[in-house]
């Protein structure tokens, strides 16, 4: 059963990632990205990371994907037919990526990975409690730094997205 679910989610992830990368239409790519994130969330569940799976759905699907769709809407002329997104450097890109994928696959197959001995004893258990207590004990400093980074990113993004319009307003009023 575990195998079937794993192969299902792996197929969903990789197939929709292929659509994301190779589709000519950027709107199709954005919607295929939804299925990629969903498949990755399923893989997280198979890896006993329930909290991360829900976080993936909330932040990637609910936040980043909506941001990307807004970006697509605001930067493509939907009136004209410029919604196609072409590729360039296809041949060098394919060769570089093929070499990289071959290298990674060879490395993964040949390495003798460390495997924990008590694999069979691992049962399904929730990780939210452990993550929560780790966030306020051992990982307190990165947690606080991350909150400051998010605040700076929000303020910076709002400033950057608004700056041009403020400038034109000032020049118009002069």
């Amino acid at each position: 059963m575990y195998e079937i679910i794993f192969y299902f989610f792996a197929a969903v992830t990789i197939g929709s990632a292929g659509v994301v990368v190779f589709s000519r239409n950027i709107v199709y790519s954005a919607f295929a990205l939804f299925f990629t994130f969903f498949g990755v969330a399923g893989i997280y569940v198979l890896l006993n990371a329930d909290f991360l799976a829900v976080t993936q759905l909330l932040i990637y699907v609910g936040g980043i994907l909506v941001l990307i769709l807004f970006g697509v809407m605001l930067t493509t002329n939907t009136v004209s037919v410029d919604i196609k997104a072409k590729s360039l450097n296809t041949l060098p890109a394919v060769s570089v990526v093929a070499a990289l994928a071959g290298l990674l696959a060879g490395m993964i197959w040949t390495t003798d990975w460390f495997m924990s001995k008590n694999m069979s004893e691992i049962t399904a258990q929730t990780t939210s409690k452990e993550i929560g207590s780790a966030l306020i004990t051992t990982h307190l400093l990165p947690f606080e730094v991350a909150s400051v980074v998010l605040l700076v990113a929000i303020v910076g993004a709002a400033m950057m997205a608004r700056r041009e319009s403020v400038k034109t307003q000032i020049s118009n009023s002069k």
Binding site: T13, I14, A17, G18, V20, V21, I26, A30, T36, V40, I68, G71, V72, T75, A85, K86, S87, L88, N89, T90, P92, A93, V94, V96, V97, L100, A101, L104, A105, I108
Partner: peptide, 18 residues
């Protein structure tokens, strides 16, 4: 690794910044 290769391909070859 497959997902990573797809991502690298998109970064190298796609024209659209998004």
């Amino acid at each position: 690794a497959i997902l990573f290769s797809f991502g690298i391909y998109a970064v190298i070859s796609r024209r659209n910044a998004i």
